[in-house]
Design a protein around this nucleic acid. Structure first.
Lengths: 269, 269
DNA sequence: AAATAAAATTGGTAGAACCAGTGTACCATT
DNA sequence: AATGGTACACTGGTTCTACCAATTTTATTT
């Protein structure tokens, strides 16, 4: 959520700049502390079920105040990485089983090194979710939605431009689709994903470079498909675009797709 | 995340109790304050872009300390409902466009009255996501995953039992499926949805009552489908089960499905 | 009028004190 | 021996006050 403000800032102070400035991190001290706590848990330095030192001691170890530490703890709880109980203590949870999307959001947002496996998973989720929301939009978008979609699609900056790289526009477009899908939960999901992919977005945009069709044309085609109510065609356009991205990414990690053939029992029921 | 602990507690102090105690809410004052802030924003009392009173004044209005208020503000930011800038102030964001899943999670968790439209959307999302993760599991689950799935499915408590109503088991089962899908992002997604539906879970379980097939049998069938690698069959089982729930729920709100026919332009490209 | 500097405002951090649940050990009662 | 009561130490929850740091506003200077 921080990137949003920063984008506004950079726009104001550099209205005609050719570069898309990265958001300058205004680290709240609690976020730094949080990062350390998360690292401690993710690295396995402290194990699930284990009890962390008390707030006073923890704060001292981090060289911050209890006040700041507590702000960090609130989010650590929120991510599903720890549970805090008054009178008892702070307990580490099993992040591999209990972490939620806010965890990914935080890790991705601060540029933490995520496991390749997880990155692939995020990408796969993005692909499936996008196709899904597009499909819903095709089912339910009314005339005014289409009009809005076409307007936003038409405002798509040229390929390779900083505005496109920043991902701001792409987000706006998919948010509009989500709004057209008439499903508030998907709107929220898109917004969650926005945070999760904020730092990775430029990478995806670079992958788009080699395409024969401009992003703008592709999206206008998408709007047409949505307007005609053809769910399959609409989702196919999205899937096709993102499959290429995924394939490129897959080269950087082992594909989980082939895992099954090795260990699977043949001829199950 | 609080409900989890409480379940453990009630299990310990009443191992053979016939009742499933509801977790006794241990309100943090910051959460109460947060709830009021959220209400203020959602109700439209303060509008997007508007600037809230300063932390000092806000804290005084809520009769709490700045320290506590700030813990609330951290999450208000995290939900995408406000942005806080040092030296400037606290600004309200457009929750209809910018709220993320944590917002739904919070609202649902405290039993806030959500718009019927949003409830339907949440249910639709749940249905689609579940079908999706099941499909992935069918694609990638290996022998050990199947074994684990069958074990968990076998431990399914009888229909109508408090354990089933609480939703704890159902969550465990779907978490196992998510783990079998080899996609960490979906594991996190399931965990996020767990929070979103925690308070609604009993309602869904009640809908299950009328089924001719027990939940246990149904899920064992599902595991079979996953084992055979039949993605369509597996997701169909899930969709079928959840479609009924959705239909029942739909009776309590207008269906967004029919919206299109009214305003749609005929014969689009 | 523009540039600059000072002041006021606002969020961010610090530190200490006290309130409120938890858990444990010990004691009294049954 | 089991149960319930009590006191105490420990831990998170909350409050207060003071001060630091970023931003905006205002006043001043050029």
């Amino acid at each position: 959520m921080r990137s949003n403000e920063s984008i506004l800032i950079s726009e104001r102070s550099n209205p005609s700049a050719a570069f898309a400035f990265r958001p300058v991190p205004k680290n709240r001290i609690s976020e730094d502390a949080l990062a350390q706590l998360v690292d401690m848990i993710v690295s396995g330095e402290v194990k699930p079920g284990e009890r962390l030192p008390g707030e006073r001691e923890l704060a001292q170890s981090l060289s911050i105040t209890r006040t700041s530490l507590r702000e960090a703890l609130r989010r650590l709880e929120n991510m599903g990485l720890a549970s805090v109980r008054q009178g008892d203590g702070i307990y580490v949870r099993d992040f591999r089983r209990e972490a939620n999307l806010d965890f990914i959001n935080f890790q991705a947002g601060r540029g933490a090194a995520l496991e390749p496996q997880l990155l692939l998973g995020m990408d796969e989720a993005r692909r499936l979710m996008s196709a899904m929301v597009v499909s819903l939009a095709a089912r339910r978008a009314d005339a005014s939605d289409i009009e809005e979609l076409r307007r936003v699609a038409g405002e798509c900056p040229p390929d390779g431009s900083p505005e496109l790289l920043s991902g701001k526009w792409d987000y706006d477009f998919y948010l509009t689709i989500a709004l057209a899908s008439m499903n508030g939960a998907f709107v929220c999901l898109i917004n969650t994903m926005k945070g999760m992919f904020a730092t990775f977005r430029p990478m995806y945009s670079l992958l788009d470079e080699g395409r024969r069709e401009s992003i703008k044309d592709l999206n206008l085609r998408l709007v047409d498909a949505i307007e005609s109510g053809d769910e399959r065609a609409a989702s196919a356009i999205v899937e096709e675009r993102m499959r290429q991205d995924m394939e490129d990414l897959a080269k950087r990690a082992q594909s989980p797709e082939k895992r099954k053939s090795k260990t699977r029992k043949a001829g199950a029921k």
